[in-house]
Every structure is written in C-alpha cells, then in structure tokens.
C-alpha cells in the first residue's frame, strides 16, 4: 500500500478536479433510511450523493443505469468517475471519495481488495475483432494479426483487454505483430474508427459503442477468454444504503438488460 500511495495520490488530486459535480446538500446523506427497504431499485428511500468509480468500458451502460436510479430516487445524485480500472484502484487505495467500485477485471478488484467489500460478478465481456468499415484489408480471423503488412492495434498488456488479448494469442499459438498498444480499450477502438489501423482486438461492448464506423468479426478463439466484471461497495462509503442499492440495481434484471443490450454477456 505505502509504495503505491504517491502515484495514487497524484491521480486522486487530478480526480478531485474532475468529479466535483455532486452539489447536493451534505445533510441529505445523513437522513436515516431503513437499510432493508432498499433492495429494489424502485424503493424511494434512497437519497444523497453517490460516487461510482467504474471501468471506462462501462461508461455508457452505467450512465444509463444511473439515470434509471436517479429517476426512481429524485433525492439521489450519482456522480461517475470512469477510467482505467488500474488507475481507479490506485485512487481508491489513496482514499479517493468513492462509494462503489466496478472494475473490468478480477485482478484490479484484488488490487483494491483492502478498501472494498465483498465483490460480486455482474457481467462478462469477450474480445472481438474490429476492422474499419468495409474491411479494406479483408481481415478474416485471428491469424491475420500475425501479418506484418497489416496495421494492427491491441490493448497494452498492462490493461485488462490487453492481458486478455495476450491470452487469446497464446492459446491460439499466434504471434501477433501489433503496431501500437492502446492505453485503454476505447483508445484502441478509436484507431480503427479513424482508419489508422486495419484491425484491432477490443471488447464486444466497445465494438458496439464504436457504431457504424467499424465492422465486427467474432472468432472462435475468443470463447475461452472472458473478462469478468466485479462490483463492490467501498468500505469507507458515507452512503452505504445508496451504494448497496446501486450494486443491487446493477445485478437486477433491469440493470442486466442494459448491460446485455450493450454487448455484455450476463452472469
């Protein structure tokens, strides 16, 4: 912990500047509400401020889930901080003010283990091949990633989608020849959107989010490698009821529908 603290501290300072939009009155979070009554999202007793740290790949789905919750709970204000799971975990370790942490890998959740409660898996994500619209270089499958004439983007091995890609290639016995290693999955997908690379491996959800600028190819080797998404309440939360309610909502049928619509595989 102590060694990591400075980096996380710097990150947390940067964070303070970004996520100070929760302008609710502090008193609201103290107003007692029966904890047991908050297990269904529609229960109106949830209020106050809630800060959710979530992996970048959850940007659209969690925003939607948050809107659902805020619609059902008018006194609740949810603030999101989306980022790379690793960065978020470091920020949590540095006591960043968060109530819920949703990570894109079990590994980063483990990193934050000492400051979060028991995690629950809420989604899986699998890798797909994305190519620019029209697939100009006629990419057909994973073996094309070994072609040095193609421009290839993968996620950096230090982030979950890159680690997953490494596993995929190791399992398939293919030596990939990437030209660049994206710092996160969205950046990697953007290289395809902009046409700078001929193919990339990204999560299915990001391929869907990239819209019509890309085409998606599924490949059989992806089946064995799924990324687990765990979610947990942060131990130091000042709004435990709302935090638990958020986790529950993500795991509820309504939350799961949002996730599967976006391309996540349900738990």
């Amino acid at each position: 912990m102590s060694r990591r603290a400075p980096v996380a501290l710097v990150a947390a300072l940067a964070l303070v500047g970004c996520s100070s939009s929760g302008a609710n009155d502090a008193g609201a979070s103290l107003s007692a509400s029966p904890p047991a009554a908050t297990t269904t999202p529609a229960a109106p007793a949830i209020s106050g401020d809630l800060t959710v740290f979530a992996a970048a790949s959850l940007t659209d789905t969690f925003a939607e889930i948050g809107d659902q919750m805020m619609a059902a709970n008018p006194d609740l204000t949810i603030t999101f901080n989306f980022g790379s799971s690793g960065t978020l975990a470091e920020q949590l370790l540095a006591d960043a003010p968060a109530d819920v942490f949703a990570s894109a890998s079990a590994k980063t959740m483990t990193t934050a283990a000492e400051v979060v409660g028991e995690p629950a898996l809420f989604a899986h994500n699998s890798l797909v091949i994305v190519v620019p619209k029209g697939n100009p270089r006629e990419v057909t499958g994973l073996s094309d990633f070994a072609n040095p004439d193609l421009k290839i983007a993968l996620c950096d091995p230090s982030v979950p989608c890159g680690a997953a890609a490494q596993t995929v290639f190791a399992n398939a016995g293919i030596t990939a020849m990437p030209d660049t290693l994206g710092p996160d999955v969205r950046a990697t997908a953007t290289y395809v959107t902009s046409g700078e690379v001929d193919a990339a491996l990204v999560y299915k959800t990001d391929a869907i989010a990239a819209g019509s600028a890309v085409e998606t190819l599924t490949f059989p080797e992806a089946a064995g490698v799924v990324n687990d998404y765990p979610i947990a309440v942060v131990q130091g939360t000042r709004n435990a009821d709302a935090a638990q309610a958020f986790v529950d909502h993500v795991l509820s049928p309504a939350g799961q529908t949002v996730l599967t619509d976006a391309g996540f595989d349900p738990t």
Binding site: R3, V7, A8, A11, T87, E90, D156, S158, V159, P183
Partner: peptide, 10 residues
C-alpha cells in the same frame, strides 16, 4: 510510466 501505473505502480 503511464502504462506501468495501470498494473505495476512500483
């Protein structure tokens, strides 16, 4: 440095 921060802060 940025990428090392993702999984290997030291």
């Amino acid at each position: 440095i940025y990428l090392a921060m993702q999984d290997d802060p030291s």
